[in-house]
């Protein structure tokens, strides 16, 4: 565990709290892409299936995995029930089929091992790298986003961006390599880069 990894994870946690706080205080999910949220739930469920057999390996990892799955499911629950009237499907129109299909193809072609768990893990890594696209697309369509939504996207993007120095650090200190995560993480950070640029110039 290094400073980049822990800061990245904290950034991810913060993004979740920002999102839930925004929805609960404004009693709405305006500006939040339901499609992106569903993609994130798929990402966490397919990646953290290993909770079933690695639960005892790391209390930290297991706790975080449970938080990510639970908060993601809770977010979707809120969007489907409490705040459903504030969700406008007409502006949340990104074609996620391509993201899911593309991630599935990459996962099937280049997993570390052709086992169900490894293919699903790889699928989740690729899908996470593009899961923000419906949200960014929606942001672009609606123009101005609420400040709080902007902070949410920033914190979520910072999480994976911070993993990049973490992988570099781990490569030099423990010869750790994880090409799938690294390539997908770089793609993910590139997708956020335009947003990051606007964020920095604005705040």
């Amino acid at each position: 565990m290094n400073i980049f990894r822990i800061t990245g994870d904290l950034s991810h946690l913060i993004s979740i709290f920002i999102l839930l706080h925004k929805m609960r205080t404004s009693k709405s999910c305006i500006g939040i892409s339901f499609k992106s949220q569903v993609l994130y739930l798929i990402v966490y469920v397919t990646r953290y299936l290993d909770l079933l057999w690695t639960f005892q390996h790391s209390a930290y990892n297991s706790l975080m995995k449970i938080i990510f799955i639970a908060s993601s499911a809770y977010t979707i629950h809120l969007m489907l029930n409490d705040f459903k009237p504030t969700h406008d499907p007409n502006i949340d129109t990104f074609k996620v089929e391509y993201l899911i299909g593309g991630s599935a193809i990459l996962a099937l072609l280049f997993p570390y091992k052709w086992t169900t768990a490894e293919v699903l893990w790889s699928f989740s890594i690729w899908l996470e790298s593009v899961a923000i696209l419906p949200q960014l697309f929606m942001l672009q369509r609606t123009g101005e986003a609420e400040t709080i939504t902007t902070h949410y996207i920033f914190a979520l993007g910072a999480y994976r961006a911070l993993y990049i120095p973490n992988w570099l650090y781990r490569y030099f200190t423990e010869s750790f390599t994880d090409p799938i995560s690294t390539i997908a993480g770089i793609i993910q950070t590139i997708l956020y880069s335009d947003f990051f640029y606007i964020y920095y110039t604005k705040y």
């Binding site: 057999w53 690695t54 390996h57 975080m64 997993p111 893990w121 995560s181």
Partner: peptide
């Protein structure tokens, strides 16, 4: 590397 148990990140 690659076995599920080696995925020690989130």
């Amino acid at each position: 590397k690659g076995h599920p148990e080696t995925h020690d990140e989130l």
